[in-house]
């Protein structure tokens, strides 16, 4: 099938913007609108736009790791954020925060780590499903 040059050119510029927006949503998400889930969905749709506009194979080479590895890493990050307070003798999943906020990111703590885990799980699961579908169809 012929690929649209317009769409491919637009996707190359749109994808980085959408990825930046997804990170913005992830970092803002504790007290305001946003969070790991929405950020992950926006990042996954940015990657999928690239996959549709250029090709699923190009998307596969763009991803640094396998999608299922992303899912595992995300779950590991979420579990770590739950277990860190246990090490200091507090109940599971207690929110621990650094006293001083970092310059760009803002307040850092275990809820941010948990959200990052959710982000990677969502990106990994959506990429896993969509890449399997797209590659099955290309056969």
């Amino acid at each position: 099938m012929k690929r649209s040059i317009l769409l491919a050119t637009a996707a190359r510029y749109l994808m980085p913007l959408m990825l930046i927006f997804s990170v913005f949503l992830l970092l803002r998400g504790h007290n305001e609108i946003g969070g790991g889930f929405v950020g992950g969905l926006v990042a996954a749709s940015a990657l999928m736009l690239y996959g549709i506009a250029i090709s699923p194979a190009a998307l596969r080479t763009l991803l640094p790791v396998e999608p299922r590895l992303l899912v595992g890493l995300g779950l590991l990050a979420a579990l770590t954020s739950g277990l860190l307070p246990v090490l200091t003798g507090r109940p599971f999943l207690t929110g621990l925060w650094l006293k001083t906020p970092l310059p760009v990111i803002g307040k850092v703590g275990t809820p941010l780590l948990f959200d990052t885990g959710v982000y990677f799980v969502v990106v990994g699961v959506v990429m896993w499903i969509l890449l399997s579908l797209a590659e099955e169809e290309a056969k």
Binding site: M18, F21, L25, I33, V38, V42, S45, M48, L49, I52
Partner: peptide, 23 residues
């Protein structure tokens, strides 16, 4: 002003949906 973010996300996702339909 919080609702404006919903509009931004809807703009991104619906654009992608239309592209997928066209595909």
């Amino acid at each position: 002003p919080n609702f404006l973010d919903v509009a931004i996300i809807l703009a991104i996702i619906s654009f992608l949906g239309t592209v997928a339909f066209a595909y």
